[in-house]
Design a protein around this nucleic acid. Structure first.
Lengths: 338, 338
DNA sequence: CTGTTAGCGCCTTCAT
DNA sequence: ATGAAGGCGCTAACAG
């Protein structure tokens, strides 16, 4: 059996004082403690190796010092970066992160939210799967501080931190056009109702619409679709008549990886036969010949800001929601050279 | 202010029964509940949107359903994979993960361990920074179930799940030799006292020692060392006299990335001028020409096994410690072609 | 089958 | 400056 740790009572007894005094000591109310008692408590705590129970502390109705983090996909570098930034902030402020991965699944997201709330987390950072569940709604009503990351949830008005997708989508498209690519295939994961995907795509369409000399198409990658289907779609795009230069615009790092793989299989050379630009900077973007141009997101900053905002909101509950849209950075490499 | 959720008392009142009955209902003791009461409780719970407080539940002296995960570096794909595997298992069993990142820092690790224990986690999965702290010791004494991942902590006897580093190190070295590389530079992050690093390195040295026709060297990458230093060291290695074929053996994915970058800067071609083999399979291993041979770790499996073992130990506290050493898989690509 | 009664470890009035 | 008492939400004997 696990040794049960010393409690506040043990310390009190050992120091010959009351629980109250020990509690006061723990809360740092030194002004109301005689030096004598303070030192006795200090000694007892050390001797007994006493550590206050956050569980009990939290029960009393407040400060659990817990932050819930719901992530759409832990295996995605983007999520990881968020995680990283958020964890750092929490740790620095004495908060601990409770992590749940939803794998972009609505049911799991709902379950995660329930779990987290049952532990009385003081706030939530949510990288939602996108579809607005009833759950999100009464999450709001519960008045629990929430910061959304990357993806909006329609109907829910809370703080949001993420990339300025419109600006980024525009910048990416414009870059391709400027480099002479006038026939662009936008490849994205299922847009569903994921706001960030929608926004990027919309920006792409709008930018293109203003350029009658250019042509744009969209390819949604079905989740379970095999490589063959992708190869087929790409081949079709490439074989379409026209002397215009062709390029692929990948809507996320996940897509970029798939595209690079596919281009390899098809034996297409970048950027001669087809240009390539992808959202999300990846560790290997510069390694793959001829270097992949990317639209980098300030991921760590997003995580950092999300956590910082959340802690602010916890400290001083306000009622005005803000959106913090951070700018993306275009990193030009060989894959989009003229 | 946050709306305070309904408590077990509210449900009891609403259903016109005692707290005990509600508690029984929650614990699934249906055998001792009349259908009538059960349904009334069910209805009240639904009506009030009641969710039991895990905090309070945990306080009562047991089951917090919390698992602590201490990770050496969240930004490392290896750690992420572990995280992923572990999270899945925990979620499936109704446990929630409390995550702490230590950034390979001893002080932060100690702090993380303290935090986690103060929340009465039922068990701990630890990817340690390596150095045995006093903290780890009384962690053991506390009898809290612990599973170490990847890295042993000297003096601490607990369950361990990780790669079979000896086998892997041998396999990697043998492969290089078989492919005709007889002059091998082993490049590693600071070995310090990190067991996995030591073991891989030792395996390298031993394997090489049995081959008088081969030569081996070791390069430890200092953490703060700049690119220039690495380039310099590599250049020196390359320029050493001898007609033997040269190769680099990267002790981890982090190192592999640095090496590929350095080789680029130096303009060295792989595998003609120098071969390359790296521990850890990365998403881009096959993308970088001519494809990087790797010694892949079963990362997800490691996370999965670690969590599974931990839950087992929580369920049935035993006292015999096991080590689960999983085999690595050699993935041969162009970087080590003959 | 069901309810009453104690706590779990801590914080917080309220006295002293 | 210090302590006693009550209660946070829940579970676990112990009665009926």
């Amino acid at each position: 059996m696990r040794d049960s740790r010393a409690t506040i009572m043990d310390v009190a007894r050992d120091a010959g004082v009351s629980k109250t005094s020990v509690s006061r000591y723990l809360s740092g109310e030194f002004k109301v403690l005689s030096d004598d008692i303070r030192q006795r408590i200090e000694a007892s705590i050390a001797r007994l190796g006493y550590r206050p129970s956050q569980m009990a502390r939290g029960l009393k109705g407040g400060r659990t010092r817990l932050i819930g983090l719901v992530v759409a996909d832990v295996m995605n570098p983007y999520s990881v970066a968020i995680l990283h930034g958020a964890e750092a902030v929490c740790q620095q402020h004495g908060y601990t992160l409770m992590l749940c991965n939803t794998g972009n699944d609505e049911a799991r997201e709902k379950q995660a939210l329930t779990m987290l709330r049952s532990y009385d987390v003081e706030g939530l950072i949510v990288h939602s799967q996108g579809r607005p569940s009833r759950f999100m709604y009464d999450l709001l009503e519960s008045n629990l501080p929430v910061v959304l990351v990357d993806r909006r949830v329609s109907g829910i008005e809370v703080d949001l931190v993420g990339l300025d997708n419109r600006q980024a989508g525009r910048a990416a498209t414009v870059h391709l056009i400027e480099r002479g690519f006038t026939d662009i295939l936008y490849v994205t994961q299922p847009i569903r109702a994921v706001s960030s995907r929608e926004e990027r795509h919309t920006a792409f369409l709008e930018t293109l619409a203003a350029r009658p000399d250019c042509r744009g198409e969209t390819l949604e990658l079905a989740a379970l679709e095999g490589d063959a289907a992708l190869d087929h779609a790409l081949a079709a795009f490439m074989s379409r008549a026209g002397t215009q230069r062709k390029a692929l615009l990948a809507a996320s790092g996940v897509v970029t990886l798939q595209l690079v793989l596919a281009l390899r299989r098809l034996g297409l050379t970048v950027p001669q036969q087809v240009g390539l630009l992808g959202f999300d900077e990846l560790s290997w973007s510069k390694l793959v010949e001829p270097g992949i141009s990317t639209l980098a997101q300030p991921t760590d900053e997003i995580g950092f800001q999300a956590a910082t905002r959340l802690l602010e909101r916890i400290a001083t509950p306000g009622h005005d929601h803000h959106e913090l849209l951070l700018p993306g950075t275009l990193i030009v490499r060989g894959s989009t050279s003229a």
